[in-house]
Structures are given as structure tokens and as C-alpha cells.
């Protein structure tokens, strides 16, 4: 969700207004995604590197995030509860001030219901390197205490120790707005395999339904029509096809 600041500068708005316009766009995109049955959406709300910004902007962002999430989740008729969305805070919680953290945990608790089958991961304050390091640290301590055996350690075991829920499916599409063509420490582990990365020129507050839809269509197209085209190697696995009918021989054996 990149480009809120450039958007407010370009439109002569206050910085905080730019950020709230960004939050509105997020609601629209979420609505579209959940209607299309995309069950997991992850947003990069705040990077650990963003602590380099001026203190008042950091405070604005923290406050805005808490307020918007509260609106999302507050009561029976709010967006998250109507759509059965579970909100989860992804990231290093030791950076969050205690008062805000307790409010966020309250939101997580409120939306975590048995019938919440859709997930909104809010990365706050997050970097992927921090995520990988924390996972490594947890794995090292369970290796030392022999809760985990060396030979059982594989990529999935490490990934399950990361901030995101172990049941999170493989990332399919990563969208970065506002024209930068780098990942900026977001979901590095998850996006380097079998994932479509889309860099779009539009600033986040101007990102609309149409563009989102275009990206989805393109992804669908590349999954079906273009499968195997880019590497030149066929990508059809026999075991993934529907099972063939039973074998019957005329000689009975």
C-alpha cells in the first residue's frame, strides 16, 4: 500500500488525509477480494524501517491503524464480523506500545470466531528478515531442547514458525503500488516461489476495482493458458490429473 504520501502531496492534502484515503481504498479492495472468495489477504501496514520517519507521522499511522481496525471489527454489524473475517497482527509485537497492543489484541480476539473462515493479516511492524530471524531463533531453541530433531528440520518447519498462521496457503499474487520495482523486505520467503509479483504505477489511494480485477484476470490467464510457456518446459504432472477409469482386460487378469 505504497503512495499515500505522494498522493497527498500531489492533491495538496494533509498527510493524515492521504493515509485515511488509503484506508478507504483498502476496504474496497478487501470487499472485492472476499466477494471473489479470496480467503487470505495480507497488507503491509507498517515496516520496522518506518520508525525512521518523523515521530508525529509514526504516531498518526499507529493511531489511524488502530482506529480503522476498530471500525472494521467493533460490533456485530461491522465489516469483519459480517464477512466472517479474522484479523491477525503479523510482526514483531515488541515494537508496539502497550496501550495500542492491548487494543489490537482485543480486536484479534473479537474477530477470532469458529465461523471466521477469511483472514486479514495486517503486517505491523513487520519486515521479512525479522520474520525469518525470529523463526530461526525459535527453531534453534527447540533444536537445543531436543523438541525437534535435526533430521526433521525442513523448509516447512521453519516457515511454520514465522508470524503467519501455519495454515496460511501459498502466496499467489503480490501487488506493490506506486511504481517501485523492489520488495522492500515484504514476504521475501513467501514470494520467491510460485508467486506472481505485480508492480503497478498507480498510487495506492488511486488503486481501484478495475486494476485489481485486471491483475486477477492476468493471474488466471497465466495459470491456465500460459502454463509452462515461460520456461519452455511442460508443467503437467500425471498425478495431478483426474484419476483414469479402472483397467479391465479381456483376458481377465
Amino acid at each position: 500500500m505504497d503512495g499515500n504520501r505522494r498522493f497527498s502531496k500531489r492533491n495538496h492534502m494533509k498527510l493524515a488525509d492521504g493515509h485515511s484515503k488509503g484506508a478507504e481504498v483498502l476496504f474496497e479492495v478487501l470487499t472485492t477480494a472476499y466477494q471473489l472468495d479470496i480467503s487470505h489477504v495480507t497488507v503491509y501496514a507498517f515496516s520496522i524501517e518506518n520508525f525512521n520517519r518523523p515521530q508525529d507521522e509514526v504516531d498518526t499511522l499507529f493511531g489511524l491503524l488502530r482506529d480503522k481496525l476498530a471500525i472494521l471489527a467493533d460490533n456485530e454489524t461491522s465489516f469483519a464480523q459480517v464477512n466472517h473475517v479474522k484479523i491477525k497482527i503479523i510482526g514483531n509485537r515488541s515494537y508496539i506500545p502497550d496501550d495500542i497492543l492491548s487494543q489490537l489484541e482485543e480486536i484479534e480476539r473479537k474477530t477470532n470466531k469458529p465461523d471466521s473462515h477469511k483472514v486479514l493479516n495486517v503486517c505491523f511492524p513487520y519486515t521479512s528478515r525479522d520474520d525469518i530471524t525470529e523463526a530461526m531463533r525459535k527453531v534453534v531453541s527447540s533444536l537445543v531442547s531436543s523438541d525437534l530433531q535435526r533430521q526433521d528440520l525442513n523448509e516447512d518447519v521453519l516457515q511454520h514458525q514465522m508470524y503467519m498462521d501455519p495454515n496460511t496457503p501459498q502466496l499467489d499474487i503480490l501487488i506493490r503500488t506506486s511504481g517501485h520495482t523492489r520488495l522492500s523486505d515484504f514476504m521475501l520467503w513467501q514470494c520467491t516461489a510460485n508467486c506472481d509479483i505485480e508492480f503497478v504505477e498507480t498510487l495506492w489511494p488511486e488503486f481501484g476495482f478495475f486494476q485489481f480485477f485486471q491483475i486477477l484476470v492476468k493471474w488466471g490467464w497465466s495459470k491456465t493458458a500460459l502454463a509452462g510457456w515461460n520456461t519452455g518446459r511442460a508443467k503437467v504432472y500425471v498425478y495431478e490429473l483426474p484419476p483414469a477409469p479402472p483397467l479391465v482386460s479381456v483376458i481377465g487378469r
Partner: peptide, 17 residues
């Protein structure tokens, strides 16, 4: 198309692509 093919994830933090 942009396919990172399991490029080392740690090494692509700020890289321009």
C-alpha cells in the same frame, strides 16, 4: 514474466528488479 524461481529470499530485500 517475473518469476523469482526460489532466488535466495534473504538476498532480495531492497534489490531493484
Amino acid at each position: 514474466s517475473l518469476d523469482l524461481q526460489n532466488f535466495p529470499p534473504w538476498h532480495i530485500r531492497l534489490t531493484e528488479i
